[in-house]
Nucleic acid binder design. Structure first.
Lengths: 200, 200
DNA sequence: ACCTGAACACCGTTCAAGT
DNA sequence: ACCTGAACACCGTTCAAGT
């Protein structure tokens, strides 16, 4: 990804390059504390160049958080196309996918919920976050229609699930959700407890 | 809190002063991005002075996270001494106290779970976090003894509760857990769903 | 024993100037 | 239209030197 397509030297689509470089750096350590100068360095441009494409660092972080939510959304949406197994199985599959997304992209996941991606893009951000949320809603609605789940406000149930998955993910990233500390199979236990509270 | 007790000028117990000043700054905005130099400035000492009491900024952050967990622990422990109401009421009271602690100290709460308070004090950190966790365990054990809750591994149940409360708290801080976005009374719905999954 | 002043190597950001 | 060089105001951290 360095200079394959005969870099036009004096430009090329920086912006995309900046985002990709920064996203790559996110995977390197579990913090999202990369520096803009380092991004520029790796992209082979001057430190001032990124400012032609992003008003400031926060804007870049925002954009990256957006991408993160889109990827999460995709990952969750991809879970559905399985055989029409039981809703319970599907619920577990979605939850496991969610948690795995976070634990395998800890820095990105943290960034998404760090609050540092706020400001101007706030609206877009929660829009995209709620899109991922929509997968949950859809799942729970089906569960209610099938009579497997109690008929309560779906958004409330979805919020309960989201909070549970988010909590598990965050605590896992922090290393506070390991079986030595918190008992065997905490993920399963937590999900079962919640699911049984939603079921008829 | 400025110079009441005739500041000995050339010393005094900085360390405590540094911690207190920094804790105060945490309340000012919802991020924990204060600078060490600013802390020194407000404490009226040179920028180098704090380094005589903390090896580096991370060490100060660690210490502050510890204090945060202790305060959370206290807050949760204080909930108990009420009339022997129903377990359900007590459960709700604990959960609400937890969430309120986070939402009224957003920067501190974020710092506690930011991962930036790690390194050397890691062990102490999770020790203190698990102490707060103990309050939950104790509550659930009583619930099991009373026959109100299912007899399953208590630590697993406690982990489920913790994840739920942590998730609700984080999403609330991020402004993603408001009723306009997620349905009416999300906190109640989420807690009821979880509790009913734990109950007999 | 505790603190300061000055320095080093870094940041984020800006802006005139280059191609 | 897009990028660079040099600068500004800031950090975290160190270390000889002060009291």
């Amino acid at each position: 990804m360095q200079d394959a397509p005969t870099r036009p030297y004096h430009h090329g689509d920086l912006r995309r390059t900046v985002i990709e470089t920064a996203m790559g750096m996110l995977q390197e350590d579990k913090g999202w504390q990369f520096t803009l100068r380092e991004v520029a360095r790796r992209a082979g441009v001057s430190q001032a160049a990124p400012y032609k494409h992003f008003p400031d660092k926060a804007a870049l972080l925002s954009e990256m958080a957006l991408i993160g939510f889109d990827r999460l959304h995709e990952a969750l949406a991809r879970v559905k196309p399985r055989r029409p197994k039981s809703l319970r199985d599907e619920f577990f599959a979605v939850a496991q996918t969610y948690v795995r997304f976070g634990t395998s992209n800890p820095a990105l996941y943290r960034l998404m919920f760090s609050g540092n991606a706020g400001s101007a893009a706030d609206v877009h951000l929660s829009e995209r976050a709620l899109a991922a949320f929509g997968v949950l809603i859809e799942l729970l609605e089906r569960g209610q229609a099938d009579g497997v789940l109690r008929k309560r406000d779906v958004r409330g149930q979805a919020a309960a699930c989201w909070a549970q998955m988010h909590g598990i993910t965050m605590l896992s990233i922090d290393g506070l959700f390991l079986s030595e500390k918190v008992g065997p199979d905490p993920l399963d236990t937590a999900l079962v407890a919640l699911l049984e509270g939603l079921e008829n």
